[in-house]
Design a protein around this nucleic acid. Structure first.
Lengths: 116, 116
DNA sequence: TTAGTATATTAGAATATGCCAATATACTAA
DNA sequence: TTAGTATATTGGCATATTCTAATATACTAA
């Protein structure tokens, strides 16, 4: 059944595109930091800004990326906006790299030393 | 001890940069497909090419990205080059998204339908 | 209304990425 | 050596990403 086979392949390709979009959203140190902060608990934007060491507009752009990929939810309370992880499973994706680090700490240290 | 605190922050920032580099390597459908193929077993480049539906030079470029991020190992045998996952833990990183998909299948289908 | 605070969006420049086409390199066989 | 096969690299263009600076929007308080 070649038709069915082709359909399956297209579906798998779409899934890979979907995965790639999510990994792309994770492919930035500031966005990783944001997600790690949200992994613990909901946070207001101003609280995030205190931790982030980037300009307000830049942080807002990164939050927009996370929103556009549907990785976070927002809640408005008066003047402020609170962000949270849309799905706690995302925390697991972030955590999944931990084992990899342990196996490749030397490389991580090279990055730390700027020898990369 | 503010000095210690600053050091920790720098190390954490370096770790986030390291993580981001790996997620960046995963942020492409063709590279995901390559890694999924390698997750099963070692593969020669020509075998990969048969599966990939991209030009040879393009595939080779994606393999170069995976090499530059140290995600794969290579082994030469005569005329051919065989690739394998450098660390099976990487397979877990790819798999970690599965739960996310199950929770967000609708979005995946939107991508499938091209409504994105 | 006006001023102030919190957050988001836009513009534009710099850099990175992805792709194709062409070329280079490495190995094998004749 | 020459020709052929397998893989990698380079050049160049199109698009995407990231950052800063500036501006816009939404809400609050006076």
């Amino acid at each position: 059944m070649p038709y069915r086979k082709k359909k399956d392949t297209e579906a798998q390709e779409s899934l890979r595109i979907f995965k790639a979009r999510i990994f792309q959203a994770l492919a930035n140190p500031t966005r990783i930091q944001i997600l790690e902060l949200l992994k613990e608990k909901e946070r207001g934007v101003s609280e995030l800004l205190e931790c982030l060491n980037v300009e307000q507009s830049n942080a807002s752009q990164h939050l927009a990326v996370l929103r556009s990929k549907n990785l976070v939810s927002t809640r408005k309370e008066g003047n402020q906006v609170f962000y949270s992880l849309r799905d706690p499973v995302l925390g697991k994706v972030l955590d999944s790299l931990k084992d990899f680090f342990q196996a490749h700490l030397e490389e991580a240290f090279e990055v730390l030393r700027g020898l990369d």
